[in-house]
Simulated scan of single mutants.
Amino acid sequence: MELASLTALGGTDRGRQRDHNEDSFGMNTQVNIRQTNHSKVVDGRGLYIVCDGMGGHAAGEVASKMAVETLEEFFAENWRKDFPDEETILKGILLANQNLFDVNQKNASSGSGRMGTTLVLMLVDKTKVAVAHVGYSRIYAISRKQGVQQLTIDHEVGQRAIQNGVDPKLAYARPDAYQLTQALGPHNNKYVQPDILFLELAEDSLFLLCSDGLCDNDLVEDHWETYLLPLLKSSQSLNKGMIRLIDFANNYNGHDNITAVFIRLKIRPKVNSQDW
Rank of each mutant, 00 (worst) to 15 (best):
G135H: 05
K270E: 11
L71T: 00
G11E: 05
G135T: 02
E73A: 15
R244E: 13
D102T: 07
E69L: 13
D218N: 13
E225K: 13
Y227Q: 13
N189T: 08
R144S: 11
N250H: 05
C210G: 11
G44P: 01
F198G: 09
A108E: 13
L245E: 11
L209F: 06
S137I: 04
S205V: 04
G147H: 00
L184G: 07
I142E: 01
K81S: 15
D154M: 12
N164V: 05
V129F: 06
T70G: 06
A63W: 06
N257R: 03
Q105K: 11
P230A: 09
E203A: 02
L90I: 12
E225F: 07
P194N: 09
D125V: 00
L95T: 03
T88E: 04
D102Q: 14
L119Y: 04
Q193L: 00
R14E: 07
L170T: 08
P230I: 06
E61G: 14
A4F: 04
G44R: 09
T118W: 07
G55C: 05
E86A: 13
I139Y: 13
G254A: 14
N99H: 14
T118F: 02
G55S: 04
E156T: 02
D43N: 14
H155W: 01
M122G: 01
Q274M: 03
A130I: 01
D275C: 00
Q159L: 10
P269I: 03
L208N: 10
D23F: 06
C51P: 01
S109L: 12
H255K: 15
P175C: 02
A108W: 03
V42K: 07
D43R: 10
D43E: 10
R34N: 05
E72D: 10
D13G: 11
N104G: 12
Y178D: 01
E86C: 11
R268C: 10
V157G: 03
Y140R: 14
S273H: 07
L209Y: 04
Q150I: 06
A173I: 02
D195C: 10
G60S: 09
T117R: 08
N250S: 06
R174M: 12
D52Q: 11
Q35T: 13
L100T: 07
G26K: 08
H223W: 08
S211A: 04
Q274Y: 12
T7W: 05
L6P: 02
P168I: 04
L197W: 03
D82N: 14
V31D: 09
H20F: 08
D23I: 06
A63L: 00
A202F: 09
V157T: 12
L100A: 07
D13I: 05
R144Y: 07
E61N: 09
R34K: 15
T181V: 03
L180S: 08
H38G: 00
R18P: 08
M1V: 08
W79C: 00
T36V: 01
I153A: 15
